[in-house]
């Protein structure tokens, strides 16, 4: 599939096999802009087989800058993973016509897959009400992270996160019928602390769901989810902060992701 950086318009070829069904974020190695790619809307089959015929299509509308600058989990700072799965994102030999970046330090095409599956932050969602639970603010904490990477005009490849061991969670992402919300391969798989925090967040939020399923369903239809379950969310958020340490809880976006994935049923409400 071909995706295009909404900032510098550079186009990149992306192996659809490496894109989970849910959203991922990619970083343009040319201009360093980070933007989302929604795996679920991509139909990899025709694009993978016929590069020349492909026109860059709007895989996902560019998001507001603040949203793109969502806080990234710490391990995003780790070095390139190209050595671990270099072939995954390598372009075909003939893949370099008009404006499609190619080459790079590993023969790649200049995209870095961000290991985060849900990039949104409630406070950035124009339509999204903000629940009064002191959730991590959508500040531009990603900016320093971007700057820590060496400025590299040469397009480069960084493979998506390979998990340390094949987790069923990841298998589900690839299996449409078994996909569950938010269960994408990602940062949480790579770092034990992050994995633990992500699991706790999802457990807490799924507790809210199963104990308030009818209220949730009704509120989701009425658009009153935040008001209906604000107290429950706040209580769980406080416990989450206490358990994972407040600073980490605020810096990471895991709790919010869990709210959107599980409680909002995939909508970006929080």
């Amino acid at each position: 599939m071909i995706i295009q950086c909404p900032d510098c318009q550079t186009r990149f070829k992306l192996d659809p096999e490496r894109v989970p069904r849910r959203s991922i974020r990619v970083r343009c190695s040319k201009c360093r802009y980070v933007f989302p790619v929604d795996g679920s809307v991509l139909d990899p089959a025709p694009e993978a087989s016929s590069f020349d015929a492909v026109e860059p299509r709007p895989v996902s509308a560019p998001r507001p800058a603040a949203e793109v600058d969502a806080p990234s989990p710490p391990e995003f700072d780790r070095g390139p993973l190209v050595d671990r799965e270099p072939e995954a994102l390598r372009p075909p030999q003939n893949a370099a016509p008009d404006g499609v970046a190619k080459g790079g330090r590993s023969g790649g095409f200049g995209l870095e897959l961000e290991r985060s599956e849900v990039p949104s932050l409630a406070t950035d969602e124009p339509q999204g009400p903000t629940v009064d639970v002191d959730l991590p603010a959508a500040t531009a904490t990603m900016a320093p992270e971007v700057e820590t990477r060496p400025a590299d005009a040469t397009p480069a490849v960084e493979a998506p996160t390979p998990v340390e061991k094949p987790a069923p969670v990841q298998a589900q992402v690839e299996a449409p019928e078994a996909a569950r919300p938010g269960a994408s391969p990602g940062a949480a798989e790579a770092d034990p602390k992050l994995k633990k925090a992500r699991r706790l967040a999802r457990a807490l939020v799924s507790d809210i769901l199963v104990y308030n399923r009818e209220v949730r369903d009704r509120a989701l239809v009425d658009g009153t989810l935040v008001q209906a379950l604000g107290q429950e969310i706040k209580k769980s958020w406080e416990l989450y902060k206490e358990k994972v340490d407040p600073e980490f809880a605020s810096e990471s976006n895991l709790f919010r992701e869990a709210l959107n994935d599980i409680l909002a049923d995939g909508q970006k409400i929080f």
Partner: peptide, 11 residues
């Protein structure tokens, strides 16, 4: 239930 896998593990 698949939505409870994290709750299972956490528990």
């Amino acid at each position: 239930d698949e939505c409870r896998i994290d709750a299972n593990i956490e528990s």
